[in-house]
Amino acid sequence: MIDVTSLAKSYGDLRAVDDVSFCVNRGEAFGLLGPNGAGKSTTIHLLAGVIAPDRGKVRLDGADPQEAIVRTRLGVSPQELAIYEELTGEENLRIFAALYGLRGDALVERVHWALDFAGLTDRRKDRAAKYSGGMKRRLNLACAVVHDPELLICDEPTVGVDPQSRNHIFESIEALRASGTTLIYTTHYMSEAQRLCDRVAIMDHGKLLAADTVDALIEAHGGSSLVLAEFDEPPPADAQLPGTLDGTQLRVDSDKPFELAAELGRGPHRVRSLRVERPDLEKVFLQLTGRSLRDS
């Protein structure tokens, strides 16, 4: 549905997006995972046709989203809140519904649906300025889906949101997913990408480092699992143990973590606790960039 080829955009010397290519199939949920400043939002702006690429192109079913009419099929929830705080939640939704070509009964019906979707039906007559941060985020998202788009693009929709609203947002996006909406979702939380996305692209310094299903990424870049064991007593220095020993703590990288764990359990030293850590996207990111996602 979306084809991105060799996309590039620079701000002065800074290559915000550097030769990025990927495609997203209809009905798929595609994640863009990367730290702040990776170039996610710039990529979204290029996808939404707001800025023109220096090189490369974006195609939505063959059409260029820089043409206004093509954008009717997109719904974008930008990272920065983009609602009119002087207006009520309902008025905001009506404006966006109208801009996407809805009229009359269809408009009224979709606005009601979107208010319900955002959990704002009770507060629809209040000015957005009076909403909490989480409610504003929900309205921001509702404005993106009020016209029932084929493709929903969410740029870090859960940033700076209280846990309750975060859950609400997450669940509403999952519901849209279930109803068949194609999704492009950026985040710097790997847990969100892992939970929501069929495929995830890892982005850093404007470059797309890898893109695949979560399992395949871990398979390819996650490396070995980590086995952590704690013994009752420090094993003697000459004990035949793999990995590194620090007092009673043992850390072992292993491709066969469960076999190793079983072996340690049977071994001569009494094990107090045993933990196996499978590699995750965090590990994939560390592997690909040499940095931790959390630190950056």
């Binding site: 702006h45 707001v50 206004a68 954008r71 974008v76 983009a82 009119y84 966006f96 801009l99 996407y100």
Partner: peptide, 17 residues
């Protein structure tokens, strides 16, 4: 500065409009 202008441009709204 608040981002609503960019948001409008993400909708099917041209510069001229």
């Amino acid at each position: 500065s608040s981002g609503t202008l960019v948001r409008l441009r993400m909708a099917p709204v041209s510069h001229a409009q």
